[in-house]
Simulated assay, not measured.
Amino acid sequence: MRNMLAALAGALFGTGLYLSGMTDTQKVQGFLDFFGDWDPTLAFVMGGAILPMAVAWALTRGRRPMVGGDFPERPDPRLDRKLIVGAVLFGAGWG
């Protein structure tokens, strides 16, 4: 049951990435090119993910997953060195 739910979640996530264009390297590179021909469409995709995630966090408060374990804690909203370095490395990998 757990593996089936994980496969379903992965397939849904992959489908969402494909439909939103996040698998197109030209589109992602265009988004990361701030000083050239910048493509803001992926910003809308990322922004559109905020609302469902906020609802998911609200619905999981005080509950446990159906397949055992615990839900992950909310991420720390502060920008720290590790987050910034990771973001720079990610961007450099695409660039």
Score class of each variant (00 low, 15 high):
residue 3 N to S: 13
residue 5 L to D: 12
residue 6 A to W: 15
residue 6 A to I: 15
residue 7 A to H: 06
residue 10 G to L: 10
residue 11 A to E: 10
residue 11 A to S: 08
residue 12 L to D: 12
residue 13 F to N: 06
residue 14 G to K: 01
residue 15 T to G: 04
residue 16 G to D: 05
residue 17 L to S: 00
residue 20 S to N: 09
residue 23 T to N: 13
residue 23 T to Q: 14
residue 27 K to P: 00
residue 28 V to Q: 03
residue 28 V to S: 04
residue 31 F to G: 02
residue 33 D to I: 05
residue 35 F to E: 15
residue 35 F to C: 04
residue 38 W to V: 02
residue 39 D to Y: 01
residue 40 P to C: 07
residue 40 P to G: 07
residue 40 P to I: 01
residue 41 T to A: 15
residue 42 L to E: 05
residue 42 L to K: 04
residue 43 A to S: 14
residue 43 A to C: 08
residue 45 V to M: 04
residue 47 G to A: 14
residue 47 G to F: 03
residue 48 G to N: 06
residue 48 G to R: 01
residue 49 A to T: 11
residue 51 L to T: 11
residue 52 P to W: 01
residue 52 P to Q: 05
residue 53 M to Q: 11
residue 54 A to Y: 00
residue 54 A to N: 06
residue 55 V to P: 01
residue 57 W to G: 00
residue 57 W to V: 02
residue 57 W to E: 13
residue 57 W to F: 11
residue 58 A to H: 04
residue 59 L to R: 11
residue 59 L to T: 05
residue 59 L to D: 02
residue 60 T to C: 11
residue 60 T to D: 07
residue 60 T to N: 12
residue 61 R to I: 06
residue 62 G to V: 04
residue 64 R to F: 07
residue 65 P to V: 09
residue 66 M to P: 14
residue 66 M to C: 10
residue 67 V to A: 15
residue 69 G to H: 07
residue 70 D to H: 08
residue 72 P to T: 05
residue 77 P to D: 08
residue 78 R to F: 05
residue 79 L to G: 08
residue 79 L to I: 13
residue 80 D to E: 13
residue 80 D to N: 15
residue 81 R to M: 08
residue 83 L to W: 09
residue 84 I to P: 01
residue 84 I to H: 09
residue 87 A to D: 12
residue 87 A to Y: 05
residue 89 L to H: 06
residue 91 G to I: 02
residue 91 G to A: 15
residue 93 G to Q: 02
residue 94 W to P: 02
residue 94 W to V: 12
residue 95 G to S: 10
